[in-house]
């Protein structure tokens, strides 16, 4: 088991290194320089752009060959130095440190919302198979899967913020993270991000439950005289959860990378999604690489966690 984890960790590091390299190359062979945005201000003040640009590039080593830059970046990274953000004029780590919480709270709340409601509704739909409730849940999940999250966000803003005025149209960073106001202004983003996930979970939970409801061990459990709530909540759910874990964890990866970024943009939440988009537009490569790397590690960590959770949940699986 320990060997397996070590093997997986080494493997994760190799994958992360591959992704880091691809991102780095993509950014550094691009047509624009990280200092372009920076020197616009200087140009506006009428100073000599070219000499300033060269001075900055020399200071940060941007004029060296790309391989040399790559190795020095890697060396810095290994020492815990994530580089300098030109667009934000601060160390990358500091920039990320001040923004990650906005993404984290959004993803965490949306995931909890989606898992609790989605798995609950899916279980109910499976138990009440072919009833009106089941059909309603099925239609709802089809709609939820098909609705683009960012458009749902716009519509929520349109209805609840613009017309009903219940919520503000933009995220206000002045509220402390742990305040009730902050929680309230997260309701719409969490819905926009979570409903698509929720709908998927309803569908997967329902079919996983149905798969197991017809299994023989369910009849055994009933024959033992167990109450229905134990039969469903213990014997069926415990088996249905196995495929669900994989799907939910996999989904979490796509939420981290896709949905959350767009939701942040629609609602103006200054999380890592916005940070990385701004960084891409400013060709602020250190930030982009760092955010990509963090995201990659997160997904790799989730994958490893899934596997380990699986060995705990399914005694039939053992990794060597």
């Amino acid at each position: 088991m320990r060997n397996y984890i070590i093997k997986r960790l080494i493997y994760s590091i190799i994958i992360a290194w591959g992704i880091l390299t691809i991102t780095f190359i993509l950014l550094r062979v691009g047509p624009t320089s990280p200092v372009d945005r920076y020197i616009l201000n200087i140009a506006a003040r009428g100073q000599d752009v070219e000499s300033v640009k060269q001075a900055i590039e020399a200071r940060y080593g941007l004029n060296k060959p790309i391989t040399e830059q790559y190795f020095s970046y890697m060396a810095n990274l290994l020492q815990g130095n994530w580089g300098w953000s030109f667009s934000a004029s601060m160390p990358v780590l500091e920039l990320i440190g001040s923004h990650w919480i906005y993404s984290f709270q959004l993803i965490l709340l949306a995931t909890i919302f989606a898992i609790i409601l989605g798995v609950g509704l899916g279980m109910l739909a499976a138990v009440k198979q072919n009833t009106k409730f089941d059909y309603a849940a099925s239609i709802f999940s089809f709609i939820g899967i098909s609705i683009p999250g960012f458009w749902l966000g716009l519509m929520l803003i349109l209805v609840f913020a613009v017309y009903l005025g219940v919520f503000k149209t933009y995220y206000d960073t002045n509220y402390p993270i742990w305040s009730l106001e902050n929680l309230k202004q997260l309701i719409l983003p969490v819905m926009a991000l979570g409903i698509g996930e929720l709908a998927g979970y309803v569908r997967y939970t329902r079919s996983a439950m149905l798969d197991n409801l017809r299994k023989e061990f369910v009849t055994t459990a009933r024959a033992k005289g167990l109450p229905e709530r134990t039969v469903i909540g213990k014997h069926v759910l415990r088996n249905a959860i196995l495929p669900l874990v994989t799907i939910i964890m996999f989904d979490l990866g796509s939420v981290v990378f896709g949905g959350a970024y767009l939701t942040e943009i629609v609602f103006g939440i200054p999380g890592l999604g916005q940070v990385s988009f701004n960084a891409i537009f400013a060709n602020d490569y250190a930030v982009v690489v760092a955010v990509t790397l963090i995201g990659t590690f997160l997904v790799l960590f989730i994958n490893l966690a899934t596997d380990l959770l699986y060995t705990y949940l399914d005694p039939r699986i053992r990794y060597e």
């Binding site: 055994t220 005289g225 134990t230 014997h235 415990r238 088996n239 399914d314 039939r316």
Partner: peptide
Amino acid sequence: IRGKDIAMVFQNAQSALNPVFTIGDQIEEQ
């Protein structure tokens, strides 16, 4: 009455036993 007065043993123990619980769990539960 199920499992207490009248108990059942099924044909295929492989599929009639729940794969994710130990034998002890499943007997003690009853």
